[in-house]
Design a protein around this nucleic acid. Structure first.
Lengths: 228, 228
DNA sequence: GCAAAAGTGTTACCCATACACCCATGA
DNA sequence: TCATGGGTGTATGGGTAACACTTTTGC
């Protein structure tokens, strides 16, 4: 057995679709490029995969050094391979999506970028490379994933009200959901736990605070959402 | 803007999980390796991605040259990146799965392999590399995909009976499904079309022959299968 | 007390399930 | 005419959607 020759291989990069949610708005984190190609254009954060690191490691490197984030939910999305997707040469990109609570981090532009900013998914600028396509797929994946897997809490504070969770689902799915039926479904699924405490300081009745049920029974949870 | 330097990049390969179905048995196509590493061991068919080709192109190359197949259903599965997955050095693999009607092709071992064979998914040999892991994920993906997308017909002849389709679903999902309820669901979904012809030459009543509905209405089809 | 939001309960209906029954064919 | 598999129909019940009502808070 011989080791691999120094065959030429496509460049291998990781690109991240980082979702954040705040004030009833779903946003994505974008970088403004400092260099060609796509100078001064917004793109998804990313980096080349080093010889000795896994994709997840590359993701964390990007999150830490470029965005100052750590300990976020990450999931592989898809690998993009169009021949001409990068004008510098053949480059394959493995896309990941991340779910973040933007409250927990303050993003600042690293050396490589002019700027880093949250953009509401409804008001995206033109994106460089094929990043629009990557974003679209990530958005779809999030919409379906939230129906059968407990990922939504990654976007919220540790404690949250039923209304906040409800609004999050409506925002991501882009549909109206009956408040009371939503509540029952979520509770029946043992998705979340009532902490007994209440959120104070607001007008009106103080809502119960919930926390996600870490030891969620594995029995296939599926939110049977009516798309009205 | 400068082109990519000759940085060293991980090797990039495509591996294929080719599913075939016949006689109520779901099988996977495996190669027996002629060389180290994993000499004389069964593995998934695959190839390295050339600089100027897309993943799909690599897939087709493998299917044609190594297996003598063309025009099969292909879908990207996942990218595998464990550092030590290939003893020859760092190699990333983009896995695809394929759905094939084995009746349509006769597989013969190419130059690179000792042998090529269909293995029932219930009787798999030990697999080289991390191919067991890849296979498992493909199997799961097929199980879920068949519930919400019209892919099952890729495994059948153009014309088929309701019973044949029914048995296919039971085989893939590994559950028993009520014959009559299955029929109604499939028909309500306008999933298939009755051709008006019947399969003859059998004992008993001659069953209707169906064909898949190519112009399947896009309205989100979902087979609500009871897992009893 | 009023408005607004949050918590709880109820009804009606749809649809999936679990069946029974009839039909066609070969032996 | 009998056994076997294939086609068609139906009743029941569980669960979802669409509701109304009560409770709590700030002003």
């Amino acid at each position: 057995m011989k080791a691999f020759q120094s065959y030429k291989n496509p460049s291998l990069a990781v690109d991240l679709v980082v979702f954040g949610y705040h004030n009833n708005i779903l946003s994505v984190l974008l970088l403004n490029r400092k260099e060609e190609p796509f100078k001064d254009t917004w793109v998804l954060p990313g980096a080349f995969v080093q010889m000795e690191e896994t994709f997840l490691h590359t993701c964390c490197r990007v999150l830490q050094t470029k965005l100052g984030m750590d300990n976020v939910y990450l999931e592989q999305l898809y690998s993009f391979d169009a021949i001409e997707r990068d004008p510098r040469g053949r480059a394959v990109s493995v896309a990941y999506f991340a779910l973040v609570n933007p409250q927990k981090f303050t993003v600042t532009a690293g050396q490589m970028a002019n700027d880093v900013k949250w953009f509401p998914v409804k008001k995206l600028p033109v994106l460089g490379f094929d990043h629009k396509e990557i974003f679209k797929m990530a958005r779809q994946r999030l919409q379906s994933k939230i129906l059968y897997a407990p990922v939504s809490f990654e976007l919220l504070d540790d404690l949250f009200t039923m209304t906040e969770l409800h609004e999050l689902y409506e925002c991501i799915l882009e549909v109206e959901l009956d408040r009371r039926n939503f509540r029952r479904k979520i509770l029946d699924a043992e998705y979340i736990v009532n902490t007994g405490t209440k959120r104070e300081g607001l007008q009106n009745r103080h809502p119960d605070l919930y926390r996600f049920n870490r030891k969620l029974s594995k029995h296939h949870f599926h939110l049977n959402i009516a798309t009205n």
